[in-house]
């Protein structure tokens, strides 16, 4: 599989993961680019020990998790610049809320729930994060409860 094929096949998934992490379309695009720059640089070192998708998710989630660390080293102006100015699509209310609520979770919870919602198997999520399968199952359940509660709270605050 060439880099171009990998990029096209995984761009949207990685964008959603990054978007869930930062809830900022421009920042998420920067993170996606940073992820694929890493993929491009390390593709020859990829040793089929895991599926390419899992490998890219691992890189993307690490890129997300080290955001604060990176921001201190690399000013945003130094980050890859998007030549094509893609306008942020207009999101519906609930989608916006979901991404906002995800970005309000603890850092690792953001990664876990995004991968779960992306239909990544829980065994793979465990191998990406460094958990046991059972931990992932329990954590996913708790995160979903937290998200439901956030929706409920929001709905109630809207009524009053």
């Amino acid at each position: 599989m060439s880099f171009e094929e990998i990029y096209t096949a995984h761009y949207s998934k990685i964008f959603r993961l990054c978007m869930g992490y930062v809830n900022d379309a421009d920042w998420a695009k920067d993170l996606v680019q940073e992820t694929f720059i890493n993929v491009w640089q390390k593709l020859d070192q990829f040793r089929n020990e895991s599926a390419i998708g899992t490998w890219i998710f691992r890189i993307a989630s690490n890129v997300c998790l080290r955001q604060l660390e990176r921001h201190n080293r690399m000013p945003r102006s130094d980050m890859p610049v998007q030549l094509e100015d893609v306008k942020e699509p207009d999101m519906e209310h609930n989608i916006r809320l979901l991404y906002r609520f995800i970005s309000e979770l603890e850092e690792t919870d953001r990664v876990i729930i995004s991968l779960e919602l992306e239909d990544v198997k829980q065994t793979e999520i465990a191998s990406i994060v460094g958990f046991s399968d059972t931990n992932v199952r329990v954590r996913v359940h708790r995160i979903k409860e937290k998200l439901s509660q956030k929706f409920k709270d929001h709905e109630q605050s809207d009524r009053f």
């Binding site: 171009e4 990029y7 720059i37 491009w40 030549l83 094509e84 999101m91 439901s148 709905e155």
Partner: peptide, 28 residues
């Protein structure tokens, strides 16, 4: 609340057109 389908909401997030791969390679 009980009917929220997180998965479908999550996937409804549009990602816009995929930016040119050449730019990523050039930047890298």
């Amino acid at each position: 609340n009980s009917q929220i389908d997180f998965k479908s909401l999550y996937h409804s997030q549009e990602t816009g057109p995929v930016p040119d791969v050449k730019e990523v390679v050039k930047k890298a």
